[in-house]
Simulated assay, not measured.
Amino acid sequence: MAQHVRDIMTAASVSVGPHTSVAEVARVMRDRDLGAVLVTDGDRLRGLVTDRDLVVRSVAQGVDTEETTVAGACSEDLVTVAPDDALDHAVRLMREHAVRRVPVVERGHAVGVVTLGDAAMERDPESALGDISVARPNA
């Protein structure tokens, strides 16, 4: 039986608006123990921002993180999948586009995120990537 994205995705409970400051997004990530959040404008998915995006596109540029919005740090050219897409399709897209996280979109609305770690855990929980994906982060 083929697995679907819906079976392993993380529900999109955390999103921020494009005008949210980089510093506030970083605090949300820290407080919720997240490596990425969706950037939405109303119901529309605008992008995805990772902790690495915040560092490379904002902090390393020397911007004022309290004044700079996440709109400039997020990836807007997104690859997305639907909840009912096959998991193999999502993994293939991650490989082709060299991304670790893919937003899950249903009827034009972001409903979750599927990650390379999710797929690794589902396929082989004993793998090195599976072990890393479930490990507690270094504080």
Score class of each variant (00 low, 15 high):
residue 3 Q to N: 13
residue 4 H to I: 02
residue 5 V to P: 07
residue 5 V to I: 09
residue 6 R to F: 03
residue 6 R to H: 10
residue 6 R to K: 15
residue 7 D to P: 04
residue 7 D to Q: 10
residue 8 I to R: 13
residue 9 M to S: 05
residue 10 T to W: 03
residue 11 A to I: 15
residue 12 A to Q: 04
residue 12 A to E: 01
residue 14 V to N: 11
residue 14 V to Y: 10
residue 15 S to I: 00
residue 16 V to F: 09
residue 16 V to A: 14
residue 16 V to T: 01
residue 17 G to P: 14
residue 17 G to S: 15
residue 18 P to D: 01
residue 18 P to T: 07
residue 20 T to L: 14
residue 20 T to R: 14
residue 22 V to D: 02
residue 22 V to P: 03
residue 22 V to S: 04
residue 23 A to S: 13
residue 23 A to K: 12
residue 27 R to D: 13
residue 28 V to P: 09
residue 28 V to S: 12
residue 29 M to V: 11
residue 30 R to C: 07
residue 31 D to F: 02
residue 31 D to P: 06
residue 31 D to M: 07
residue 32 R to P: 03
residue 33 D to Q: 14
residue 34 L to A: 05
residue 35 G to L: 01
residue 35 G to A: 01
residue 36 A to T: 00
residue 36 A to S: 15
residue 38 L to T: 01
residue 38 L to V: 00
residue 39 V to F: 01
residue 39 V to M: 08
residue 41 D to T: 00
residue 42 G to E: 00
residue 43 D to S: 04
residue 43 D to N: 07
residue 44 R to P: 02
residue 44 R to T: 08
residue 44 R to K: 12
residue 44 R to C: 02
residue 45 L to C: 00
residue 45 L to S: 01
residue 46 R to E: 10
residue 46 R to D: 11
residue 46 R to I: 09
residue 46 R to H: 00
residue 47 G to P: 14
residue 47 G to R: 06
residue 47 G to D: 10
residue 49 V to P: 08
residue 50 T to E: 02
residue 50 T to P: 04
residue 51 D to Q: 11
residue 53 D to G: 04
residue 54 L to E: 02
residue 54 L to H: 06
residue 55 V to L: 15
residue 55 V to M: 13
residue 56 V to Y: 08
residue 57 R to S: 06
residue 57 R to L: 10
residue 61 Q to F: 11
residue 62 G to I: 07
residue 65 T to S: 07
residue 66 E to S: 15
residue 69 T to A: 11
residue 70 V to I: 15
residue 70 V to F: 03
residue 71 A to M: 10
residue 71 A to T: 10
residue 73 A to N: 05
residue 73 A to D: 05
residue 73 A to E: 00
residue 74 C to R: 07
residue 74 C to S: 05
residue 75 S to E: 14
residue 78 L to K: 07
residue 78 L to V: 05
residue 78 L to C: 03
residue 80 T to C: 10
residue 81 V to D: 06
residue 81 V to W: 11
residue 84 D to N: 13
residue 86 A to P: 09
residue 86 A to H: 13
residue 86 A to G: 13
residue 87 L to W: 08
residue 88 D to T: 10
residue 89 H to E: 12
residue 89 H to A: 07
residue 89 H to C: 03
residue 91 V to C: 04
residue 94 M to W: 01
residue 94 M to Y: 08
residue 95 R to E: 08
residue 95 R to L: 10
residue 98 A to E: 12
residue 98 A to H: 15
residue 100 R to A: 03
residue 101 R to W: 06
residue 101 R to K: 12
residue 103 P to D: 01
residue 104 V to R: 06
residue 105 V to P: 12
residue 106 E to R: 15
residue 106 E to S: 14
residue 106 E to M: 13
residue 107 R to N: 15
residue 107 R to I: 00
residue 108 G to F: 07
residue 109 H to T: 00
residue 111 V to L: 01
residue 113 V to M: 10
residue 114 V to S: 12
residue 115 T to V: 04
residue 115 T to L: 06
residue 116 L to M: 12
residue 118 D to M: 08
residue 118 D to F: 05
residue 120 A to F: 08
residue 121 M to F: 01
residue 122 E to T: 11
residue 123 R to C: 09
residue 126 E to V: 02
residue 129 L to Y: 08
residue 129 L to E: 10
residue 129 L to M: 13
residue 129 L to K: 06
residue 132 I to R: 15
residue 132 I to H: 13
residue 132 I to W: 14
residue 135 A to F: 03
residue 136 R to H: 08
residue 136 R to W: 05
residue 136 R to N: 05
residue 138 N to H: 11
residue 138 N to I: 10
residue 138 N to G: 13
residue 139 A to R: 12
